[in-house]
Structure formats: structure tokens, C-alpha cells
């Protein structure tokens, strides 16, 4: 009997309509939300060739969430003081203070703020340890605060492999622990002008690590 009821229900939901349009799309959205299905987007690592980047009009950044393979091209958004936001077409964004991620938006369990003032100095070689304070959005819409103790190793000359090509850079390794023993390992490749050309940075427990390529500055 339940099968009959369910199929009747599903059938009739498909045929429901209202002043705000068909409920079919809403149902589809709900189902794909439950199933976690997403249409496979084009692979930006293949389409963002050095030529395509050279032809792009304006600054460009490439970001990939390493845990789930979601990729995006970002362009500069609003600047607030020393913090520069980079934004995708669907308004997801990362904000940076001196190349260090200080906030994320639109990624789910976002990093609402991170106090990275000391980190920026340490990455530039002006200190060998620093403290990070991160605030994440939790499932209950509250903010979870985590403080990390971080140490830095200036790993020396290296080259930054980005989609735009290979740049001479020095590599900095950052290792952080929070009070519960969670270990985070970030890497930064800094070019001669002091710009973080590429980095792999940890955002939040939900998002994990992101791979960030600074492709073009102007």
C-alpha cells in the first residue's frame, strides 16, 4: 500500500503548479540536495591554459577545494582596508590579508573571520611563530572559535607551479595545532615581489584545504 501511496504522491507532486511556478524544480532541487548530486562542471585546470589566462581581461585567481574538486575562477571584489576580496560569478568569495585567507563565503560551513595579522608577518619571514584565531559557522548557526599555534619554516628557493606557468618563488611551510590536537599544514610560494603566487590553505573543518593560484595581477 505504501508504494501505491508514495507513487501517487510523487506523481501528483510532479503535476502540482502554483503562482510561483511548477513545484517540479523545487522538488528536483530538494532531491539533488539530499542526494548531493551536482552537474559536472568543465575542468578549469584544462581550460585555463596560459594563453587563455593571457587573453583574460584583468586580474584572475584559480581556486580548487581539494576535498571535493570544486573549482572556480575568481576576480577581485571589494577591498576593505588591507583585506582584498576575490569573488566567483555565483558570489562565493575568499578574502585575503597579505595572501592569507581571512574569510570565506558561499562554501557552506564558512570561515566567518580569521585573525591572521601575525600570520601575514610570519609568512613574510618576519617571525617564526604566530597565532591564528578562526571562527566557523556551525550546523547550529553559531560560531565555533578555534585558536591555533603555528610555526613556520622558510623552505628556501623553489618554484611555484601555477596554471599560468612556473614562477621562481621561495616556499614557506606553516604547521598549526589547535588545543584539541588538530594539525593543519599550509604552504605558500612567494615570488620576488613578495606576492603569494600560490598557496594551499586550510579553510575550515567543513571545507578543508583549498589550492589557490594567483594567475594574473592586472
Amino acid at each position: 500500500m505504501m508504494r501505491l501511496v508514495l507513487s501517487l504522491l510523487c506523481l501528483s507532486i510532479l503535476s502540482a503548479c502554483s503562482s510561483s511556478g511548477s513545484e517540479l524544480n523545487a522538488l528536483r532541487g530538494t532531491l539533488s540536495g539530499i542526494m548531493g548530486q551536482r552537474a559536472a562542471p568543465p575542468n578549469l585546470r584544462q581550460s585555463l591554459t596560459p594563453e587563455a589566462i593571457a587573453n583574460f581581461n584583468g586580474p584572475l585567481m584559480f581556486v580548487e577545494v581539494t576535498g571535493n574538486g570544486i573549482q572556480a575562477g575568481l576576480t577581485p571584489g571589494v577591498r576593505n582596508g588591507a583585506v582584498q576580496q576575490w569573488i566567483t560569478q555565483d558570489a562565493a568569495s575568499l578574502s585575503f590579508l597579505g595572501g592569507i585567507v581571512t574569510a570565506s563565503r558561499g562554501l557552506g560551513g564558512d570561515l566567518i573571520t580569521a585573525d591572521v595579522r601575525d600570520v601575514a608577518a610570519a609568512v613574510q619571514g618576519r617571525a617564526d611563530h604566530a597565532e591564528r584565531v578562526h571562527r566557523y559557522l556551525t550546523h547550529e548557526n553559531s560560531l565555533e572559535i578555534r585558536a591555533f599555534k603555528c610555526s613556520y619554516v622558510q623552505a628556501g628557493p623553489d618554484s611555484a607551479d601555477t596554471l599560468a606557468g612556473r614562477f621562481p618563488a621561495r616556499r614557506v611551510e606553516e604547521t598549526c595545532y589547535d588545543s584539541k590536537g588538530l594539525k593543519v599544514e599550509n604552504q605558500y610560494w612567494i615570488d620576488r615581489s613578495g606576492v603569494v603566487r600560490r598557496s594551499v590553505q586550510w579553510i575550515s573543518p567543513f571545507v578543508g584545504y583549498v589550492d589557490i593560484h594567483r594567475l594574473k595581477d592586472r
Binding site: 577591498r79 558561499g106 557552506g108 560551513g109 550546523h139
Partner: peptide
């Protein structure tokens, strides 16, 4: 209630300074 992240609905509009 879910393994994945809290509600995902795109980012906010910018805050213009």
C-alpha cells in the same frame, strides 16, 4: 543533521566601503 556543511546558498552581496 548532515555530514556536509551548513546551508549552502551562494555568497552574500559585497559590502561597499
Amino acid at each position: 543533521p548532515r555530514r556536509s556543511a551548513p546551508v549552502l546558498d551562494g555568497g552574500p552581496p559585497p559590502l561597499l566601503v
